[in-house]
């Protein structure tokens, strides 16, 4: 079985977000880039499966749509333990554009299990996994919180309202994963970092594709207002403030 993990290159989750060009572009200055946390958990689970299923998993590949700047993120995935990496050499524009490029790059490569994180921590589009399955004409299972493999059988646990369900699927398929699929991402070892130097990172040129959406502008959430303390004796003032300032009553 061959596993493909879709990797999004995202700003570190503690990044201070700023916008430039009249709030139409994200300011990437000084940003540290990481593997999208969901994708990192997907990779962790794929490697666990590879180690524990006694040869059932032939290889684990990671793929990213991005310019050369995203290669450190892919090499980190290789250092963590992926066998090889694919980079589709273009600036990702929207979910349709990314999903189409991934499908074009891998449609003839025979991946049996394709895993995408439920969303990326930067744009939260939550669309690539489903679109990718559609382009490839394979089933997709969303909100997967656990993946198990026995021989050629895959069982996927999904969170549903008030409980969970277990789903079996034919191969190939796309699993869109969320919390629970793995507990903690792996830290690359010195050996892994050294071996990453020699693992293949294949660059694929983009195909003709258009983005279907465009970013018009960004807005930062309103800054949190300062907390105002009211003396417990002074209920009148509290009611007055709730009425005139907070405007909730």
């Amino acid at each position: 079985m061959k596993i493909l993990i879709c990797i999004s290159n995202v700003p570190d989750t503690t990044t201070k977000i700023r916008f430039v060009n009249d709030n139409t572009a994200f300011d990437t200055n000084g940003v540290q880039w990481i593997i999208n946390p969901w994708d990192e958990l997907a990779l962790t689970r794929a490697l666990e499966l590879k180690e524990t299923t006694g040869g059932a998993i032939e290889k684990v590949t990671v793929i990213n749509v991005g310019t050369k700047d995203t290669e450190p993120t892919l090499r980190k995935a290789l250092a963590i333990g992926a066998d090889d990496a694919i980079r589709v050499n273009t600036e990702p524009k929207d979910a349709f554009f990314v999903a189409y490029h991934i499908s074009e790059a891998v449609k003839n490569e025979g991946y049996d299990m394709i895993i995408a994180g439920i969303d990326s921590s930067d744009y939260n589009g939550a669309a690539v996994g489903g679109m990718l399955a559609e382009f490839l004409g394979v089933p997709s299972v969303s909100s997967v919180s656990s993946i198990d493999v026995e021989g050629d059988n895959v069982s996927l646990k999904r969170e549903i309202d008030g409980g969970s369900e277990v789903i079996g699927t034919q191969l190939p398929f796309v699993a869109i994963i969320q919390k629970g699929v793995a507990i903690e991402p792996r830290i690359p070892s010195m050996r892994g970092i050294m071996m990453a130097r020699k693992k293949p990172l294949n660059v694929v040129e983009p195909v003709e594709a258009d983005a279907l959406t465009e970013f018009v502008s960004y807005e930062l959430p309103q800054a949190k207002a300062a907390c105002k303390m009211v003396d417990p004796e002074n209920v009148k003032e509290l009611i007055n403030l709730l009425h005139t300032e907070a405007k909730v009553i």
Partner: peptide, 10 residues
Amino acid sequence: TEEQLMIRQA
């Protein structure tokens, strides 16, 4: 280097 940064992060 990219590797040094990866080690620091690890």
